[in-house]
Amino acid sequence: MSVTLAIARREWASLFRLPVGWVTVALFLMLCGSVFALAVLNPGMAASQRAFFGAAGWLLLPVVPAISMRLFSEELRSGTIEPLITSPVREGSIVMGKYLGAAAMLACMLVPTLLYSLVLWRVSARPPEIGPLLAGYLSLLLPGLFYLSLGTMCSAFTANQTLAFLSTLFVLLLLLLGSALLPNLAPIAWRPLLGYLSFDARIQDFAKGVIDPRHAVYFVGASIPPLLLAGVALRARRLA
Protein backbone atom coordinates (compact mmCIF):
# COMPACT_ATOMS: atom_id res chain seq x y z
CA MET A 1 0.00 0.00 0.00
CA SER A 2 2.85 2.40 0.85
CA VAL A 3 4.32 1.80 -2.61
CA THR A 4 0.95 2.56 -4.24
CA LEU A 5 0.72 5.79 -2.25
CA ALA A 6 4.31 6.72 -3.16
CA ILE A 7 3.48 6.30 -6.87
CA ALA A 8 0.22 8.26 -6.39
CA ARG A 9 2.06 11.10 -4.62
CA ARG A 10 4.68 11.29 -7.35
CA GLU A 11 2.03 11.29 -10.07
CA TRP A 12 -0.05 13.97 -8.35
CA ALA A 13 2.96 16.21 -7.68
CA SER A 14 4.24 15.77 -11.25
CA LEU A 15 0.88 16.81 -12.73
CA PHE A 16 1.14 20.03 -10.73
CA ARG A 17 4.78 20.64 -11.70
CA LEU A 18 4.09 20.36 -15.43
CA PRO A 19 2.53 23.05 -17.62
CA VAL A 20 -0.01 20.54 -18.96
CA GLY A 21 -1.43 20.15 -15.42
CA TRP A 22 -1.70 23.88 -14.75
CA VAL A 23 -3.10 24.71 -18.17
CA THR A 24 -5.76 21.97 -17.85
CA VAL A 25 -6.81 23.19 -14.38
CA ALA A 26 -6.80 26.83 -15.46
CA LEU A 27 -8.88 26.12 -18.56
CA PHE A 28 -11.40 24.06 -16.61
CA LEU A 29 -11.78 26.72 -13.89
CA MET A 30 -12.01 29.55 -16.42
CA LEU A 31 -14.78 27.83 -18.37
CA CYS A 32 -16.60 26.75 -15.20
CA GLY A 33 -16.33 30.30 -13.85
CA SER A 34 -17.82 31.68 -17.07
CA VAL A 35 -20.75 29.26 -16.91
CA PHE A 36 -21.30 30.14 -13.24
CA ALA A 37 -21.23 33.88 -13.92
CA LEU A 38 -23.47 33.72 -16.98
CA ALA A 39 -25.94 30.94 -16.17
CA VAL A 40 -26.09 30.76 -12.36
CA LEU A 41 -25.61 34.31 -11.07
CA ASN A 42 -28.83 35.67 -12.52
CA PRO A 43 -30.89 38.07 -10.39
CA GLY A 44 -34.37 36.80 -9.57
CA MET A 45 -33.52 33.13 -10.22
CA ALA A 46 -33.56 30.33 -7.64
CA ALA A 47 -30.19 29.67 -5.97
CA SER A 48 -29.27 26.54 -7.93
CA GLN A 49 -25.95 25.44 -9.46
CA ARG A 50 -27.63 22.92 -11.76
CA ALA A 51 -26.51 24.75 -14.91
CA PHE A 52 -22.93 24.83 -13.62
CA PHE A 53 -22.86 21.10 -12.81
CA GLY A 54 -24.35 20.27 -16.21
CA ALA A 55 -21.71 22.29 -18.05
CA ALA A 56 -18.83 21.07 -15.82
CA GLY A 57 -19.93 17.46 -16.51
CA TRP A 58 -19.48 18.05 -20.24
CA LEU A 59 -16.15 19.81 -19.66
CA LEU A 60 -14.85 16.69 -17.94
CA LEU A 61 -15.00 14.87 -21.28
CA PRO A 62 -11.90 16.60 -22.70
CA VAL A 63 -10.34 17.52 -19.32
CA VAL A 64 -10.08 14.00 -17.87
CA PRO A 65 -8.29 12.55 -20.94
CA ALA A 66 -5.90 15.54 -20.75
CA ILE A 67 -5.03 14.50 -17.18
CA SER A 68 -4.79 10.78 -17.89
CA MET A 69 -3.03 10.82 -21.27
CA ARG A 70 0.50 11.02 -19.85
CA LEU A 71 0.07 8.50 -16.99
CA PHE A 72 1.69 5.61 -18.86
CA SER A 73 2.29 7.05 -22.33
CA GLU A 74 4.95 9.47 -21.10
CA GLU A 75 6.70 6.70 -19.13
CA LEU A 76 6.66 4.46 -22.21
CA ARG A 77 7.95 7.25 -24.46
CA SER A 78 10.74 8.47 -22.18
CA GLY A 79 11.83 5.01 -20.99
CA THR A 80 11.15 5.75 -17.29
CA ILE A 81 8.83 2.73 -17.35
CA GLU A 82 11.97 0.53 -17.28
CA PRO A 83 13.25 1.56 -13.81
CA LEU A 84 9.63 1.40 -12.62
CA ILE A 85 8.81 -2.12 -13.79
CA THR A 86 12.22 -3.44 -12.72
CA SER A 87 11.57 -2.36 -9.13
CA PRO A 88 9.85 -4.89 -6.85
CA VAL A 89 6.37 -3.47 -7.46
CA ARG A 90 3.33 -5.37 -8.75
CA GLU A 91 1.48 -4.17 -11.84
CA GLY A 92 -1.62 -3.58 -9.70
CA SER A 93 0.25 -1.18 -7.42
CA ILE A 94 1.64 0.77 -10.38
CA VAL A 95 -1.80 1.09 -12.02
CA MET A 96 -3.58 1.98 -8.77
CA GLY A 97 -0.86 4.47 -7.80
CA LYS A 98 -1.14 6.29 -11.10
CA TYR A 99 -4.94 6.20 -11.02
CA LEU A 100 -5.11 7.54 -7.46
CA GLY A 101 -2.61 10.30 -8.28
CA ALA A 102 -4.75 11.40 -11.24
CA ALA A 103 -7.92 11.10 -9.09
CA ALA A 104 -6.33 13.40 -6.49
CA MET A 105 -5.58 15.86 -9.29
CA LEU A 106 -9.24 15.70 -10.39
CA ALA A 107 -10.40 16.30 -6.83
CA CYS A 108 -7.99 19.25 -6.48
CA MET A 109 -9.39 20.68 -9.69
CA LEU A 110 -12.93 20.58 -8.31
CA VAL A 111 -12.07 22.08 -4.90
CA PRO A 112 -11.70 25.72 -6.13
CA THR A 113 -15.23 25.52 -7.62
CA LEU A 114 -16.56 25.36 -4.04
CA LEU A 115 -15.93 29.10 -4.09
CA TYR A 116 -18.87 29.43 -6.49
CA SER A 117 -21.12 27.79 -3.91
CA LEU A 118 -19.88 30.22 -1.25
CA VAL A 119 -20.56 33.15 -3.56
CA LEU A 120 -24.06 31.85 -4.29
CA TRP A 121 -24.61 31.44 -0.56
CA ARG A 122 -23.67 35.03 0.09
CA VAL A 123 -25.66 36.65 -2.69
CA SER A 124 -28.87 34.56 -2.52
CA ALA A 125 -31.90 35.68 -0.54
CA ARG A 126 -32.73 32.03 0.12
CA PRO A 127 -29.54 29.97 0.63
CA PRO A 128 -29.12 26.97 -1.72
CA GLU A 129 -29.87 23.50 -0.37
CA ILE A 130 -26.99 21.24 0.63
CA GLY A 131 -28.48 18.03 -0.87
CA PRO A 132 -28.48 19.16 -4.52
CA LEU A 133 -25.04 20.70 -4.00
CA LEU A 134 -23.63 17.41 -2.75
CA ALA A 135 -25.39 15.49 -5.54
CA GLY A 136 -23.96 17.95 -8.07
CA TYR A 137 -20.39 17.35 -6.91
CA LEU A 138 -20.96 13.59 -6.91
CA SER A 139 -22.23 13.96 -10.50
CA LEU A 140 -18.79 15.33 -11.37
CA LEU A 141 -16.55 13.21 -9.16
CA LEU A 142 -17.99 9.73 -9.70
CA PRO A 143 -18.23 9.85 -13.51
CA GLY A 144 -14.87 11.66 -13.46
CA LEU A 145 -13.30 8.69 -11.67
CA PHE A 146 -14.83 6.34 -14.22
CA TYR A 147 -13.53 8.48 -17.10
CA LEU A 148 -10.09 8.45 -15.46
CA SER A 149 -10.07 4.66 -15.32
CA LEU A 150 -10.75 4.59 -19.08
CA GLY A 151 -8.00 7.18 -19.61
CA THR A 152 -5.55 5.12 -17.53
CA MET A 153 -6.36 2.08 -19.65
CA CYS A 154 -5.90 3.91 -22.97
CA SER A 155 -2.62 5.44 -21.77
CA ALA A 156 -1.26 2.00 -20.83
CA PHE A 157 -1.65 0.81 -24.43
CA THR A 158 0.35 3.50 -26.23
CA ALA A 159 3.52 5.57 -25.94
CA ASN A 160 1.80 8.39 -27.83
CA GLN A 161 0.07 10.92 -25.54
CA THR A 162 -2.04 12.38 -28.35
CA LEU A 163 -3.30 8.91 -29.24
CA ALA A 164 -4.04 8.22 -25.56
CA PHE A 165 -6.03 11.48 -25.34
CA LEU A 166 -8.00 10.89 -28.55
CA SER A 167 -8.73 7.22 -27.84
CA THR A 168 -10.02 8.08 -24.35
CA LEU A 169 -12.22 10.83 -25.77
CA PHE A 170 -13.47 8.46 -28.47
CA VAL A 171 -14.33 5.71 -25.95
CA LEU A 172 -16.07 8.25 -23.67
CA LEU A 173 -18.18 9.71 -26.48
CA LEU A 174 -19.04 6.24 -27.71
CA LEU A 175 -20.16 5.20 -24.21
CA LEU A 176 -22.13 8.41 -23.66
CA LEU A 177 -23.91 8.14 -27.00
CA GLY A 178 -24.55 4.43 -26.54
CA SER A 179 -25.73 5.04 -23.00
CA ALA A 180 -28.18 7.73 -24.11
CA LEU A 181 -29.45 6.13 -27.34
CA LEU A 182 -29.34 2.36 -26.95
CA PRO A 183 -32.00 2.02 -24.22
CA ASN A 184 -34.51 3.60 -26.64
CA LEU A 185 -33.34 1.90 -29.84
CA ALA A 186 -32.68 -1.66 -28.66
CA PRO A 187 -35.29 -4.47 -28.75
CA ILE A 188 -37.80 -4.12 -25.91
CA ALA A 189 -36.52 -7.23 -24.10
CA TRP A 190 -33.06 -5.68 -23.79
CA ARG A 191 -34.16 -2.24 -22.68
CA PRO A 192 -34.33 -2.88 -18.89
CA LEU A 193 -30.76 -4.24 -18.92
CA LEU A 194 -29.44 -1.41 -21.10
CA GLY A 195 -31.31 1.12 -18.98
CA TYR A 196 -29.62 -0.32 -15.89
CA LEU A 197 -26.17 -0.16 -17.53
CA SER A 198 -26.71 3.38 -18.82
CA PHE A 199 -24.62 5.88 -16.89
CA ASP A 200 -26.31 8.83 -18.56
CA ALA A 201 -29.49 8.15 -16.56
CA ARG A 202 -27.50 8.04 -13.33
CA ILE A 203 -25.84 11.38 -14.07
CA GLN A 204 -29.33 12.80 -14.71
CA ASP A 205 -30.41 11.48 -11.29
CA PHE A 206 -27.52 13.29 -9.60
CA ALA A 207 -28.41 16.45 -11.53
CA LYS A 208 -31.92 16.24 -10.07
CA GLY A 209 -30.38 16.13 -6.60
CA VAL A 210 -30.94 12.40 -6.06
CA ILE A 211 -28.14 10.75 -4.05
CA ASP A 212 -28.45 7.01 -4.58
CA PRO A 213 -25.64 4.82 -3.15
CA ARG A 214 -26.29 2.34 -5.97
CA HIS A 215 -25.08 4.96 -8.42
CA ALA A 216 -21.82 5.32 -6.48
CA VAL A 217 -21.38 1.53 -6.46
CA TYR A 218 -22.09 1.51 -10.21
CA PHE A 219 -19.43 4.09 -11.07
CA VAL A 220 -16.80 2.59 -8.75
CA GLY A 221 -17.59 -0.88 -10.11
CA ALA A 222 -17.44 0.32 -13.72
CA SER A 223 -13.95 1.74 -13.05
CA ILE A 224 -12.53 -1.66 -12.13
CA PRO A 225 -12.46 -3.43 -15.56
CA PRO A 226 -10.53 -0.60 -17.32
CA LEU A 227 -7.98 -0.57 -14.48
CA LEU A 228 -7.63 -4.35 -14.72
CA LEU A 229 -7.06 -3.98 -18.47
CA ALA A 230 -4.38 -1.35 -17.79
CA GLY A 231 -2.68 -3.91 -15.51
CA VAL A 232 -2.95 -6.53 -18.28
CA ALA A 233 -1.32 -4.10 -20.75
CA LEU A 234 1.53 -3.49 -18.30
CA ARG A 235 1.95 -7.20 -17.65
CA ALA A 236 1.96 -7.90 -21.37
CA ARG A 237 4.96 -5.58 -21.67
CA ARG A 238 6.75 -7.58 -18.98
CA LEU A 239 5.96 -10.81 -20.78
CA ALA A 240 6.75 -9.55 -24.29
Partner: peptide, 16 residues
Protein backbone atom coordinates in the same frame (compact mmCIF):
# COMPACT_ATOMS: atom_id res chain seq x y z
CA UNK B 1 14.76 -6.40 -4.83
CA UNK B 2 18.33 -7.75 -5.06
CA UNK B 3 19.03 -5.77 -8.25
CA UNK B 4 19.98 -2.13 -8.77
CA UNK B 5 19.54 -1.21 -12.41
CA UNK B 6 20.78 1.76 -14.42
CA UNK B 7 19.20 1.49 -17.88
CA UNK B 8 20.94 2.88 -20.94
CA UNK B 9 20.72 6.72 -21.08
CA UNK B 10 19.44 6.79 -17.45
CA UNK B 11 15.73 7.58 -17.95
CA UNK B 12 14.57 9.87 -15.12
CA UNK B 13 11.62 12.17 -14.37
CA UNK B 14 12.82 15.64 -15.47
CA UNK B 15 10.24 17.51 -13.37
CA UNK B 16 11.43 15.95 -10.08
Amino acid sequence: RAIGYLPESAPLYPEM
